[in-house]
């Protein structure tokens, strides 16, 4: 019996996982979502720079692509909503080539929702190769790194970007990162050298890796995974896909924990049974 449970067809486990994600979407229940201090810091910083007379400028580096869209897009939309609500200007760019259309679409959608004008309130500069090289380059010579935006407009003539010469002219830099060519490279090749306010928005997989940067102050805020995005949505009081996703997320985790504990119980029972058999 125990052996049978051990060798259960993996497709049965797959079915449980699938249902644990689907069913909570159909049955609604409320969950308490409270922002942790790392998410709150990002929120507070945007609030702070919105107080500036000029409105403040954020650089959002979309360092991810479709593979992690479900995790990072809700956070990107929530942060853009917050910035546009507070009249903070946003410059977008990408270090991952496969995310260009996605990043552009997100920025266009959010700008449309808040009636923001391209070139004045926001700009999307697109992708350049090199990751670390690009980060170092734009930190010293912003116009040289991105001569034009994705529309082919010269950035030294775009109202929003014409006065930005170096990274120091930007109030807040954040990388929405899914791995290599993201948060870590920003810190290594740019932030540690130019010491500006930097935040990370990352996939849950990589979130534990960035805690040393938080404690050292190289990164002062972190929005990690879909849970982080849900916390940000709670802070701006704009429920979206992340808050909705917390029900299936919670149930799927419970199902997985059940599987792990059940697997271990089976293991120990089986071990005891084997030992008894050996003694006999």
């Amino acid at each position: 019996m125990i052996q049978k449970l051990f060798n259960i067809d993996r497709r049965i486990i797959f079915a449980f996982i699938f249902l644990s994600v689907l069913l909570p979407f159909l049955v609604k229940f409320d969950l308490p979502i409270e922002a942790d201090k790392n998410v709150r810091t990002v929120y507070n910083k945007i609030e702070e720079i919105s107080q500036k007379a000029s409105g403040g400028i954020i650089l959002m580096s979309f360092d991810y692509d479709n593979s992690t869209k479900a995790e990072l897009e809700p956070a990107a939309r929530a942060i853009l909503s917050h910035a546009f609500m507070k009249n903070v200007k946003v410059i977008g760019m990408s270090n991952w080539p496969n995310g260009v259309t996605m990043a552009k679409t997100i920025m266009e959608d959010m700008a449309k929702e808040y009636g923001k004008q391209n070139g004045v309130d926001w700009a999307y500069l697109g992708y350049k190769s090199g990751a670390g090289l690009l980060m170092l380059n734009l930190s010293m010579d912003f116009h040289g790194a991105f001569p034009t935006d994705t529309r082919g407009e010269k950035i030294d003539q775009i109202p929003l970007t014409k006065n930005i010469r170096t990274i120091k002219d930007i109030d807040y830099v954040m990388s929405l990162s899914a791995g290599s060519g993201g948060i870590e490279e920003w810190i290594i090749y740019s932030q540690s050298k130019y010491n500006y306010a930097f935040a990370g928005v990352c996939t849950a997989v990589s979130a534990p890796d960035y805690f040393p940067f938080l404690q050292s102050g190289q990164m002062h805020g972190l929005v990690g995974g879909l849970a982080g995005a849900a916390q940000y949505e709670t802070l701006i009081n704009k429920p979206g896909t992340a808050i909705d996703g917390m029900r299936p997320q919670s149930v799927a985790h419970l199902v997985l924990i059940f599987f792990i504990i059940f697997g271990n119980i089976c293991y120990f029972v089986n071990k005891k049974f084997d030992m008894k058999k050996e003694r006999a």
Binding site: I17, F18, V21, L22, F25, S67, T68, K69, A70, E71, T203, A204, V205, A207, P208, D209, G224, G225, L226, A227, T241, D244, G245, P248, Q249, A252, H253, L256
Partner: peptide, 24 residues
């Protein structure tokens, strides 16, 4: 262990994205 916990969270989030597309 902490990394594993967060990895599970990441993978489930991606599945949530696809399920919400198929059934939304």
């Amino acid at each position: 262990g902490a990394s594993f916990g967060y990895t599970v969270m990441a993978r489930v989030s991606l599945l949530i994205g696809r399920v919400s597309f198929l059934f939304g």
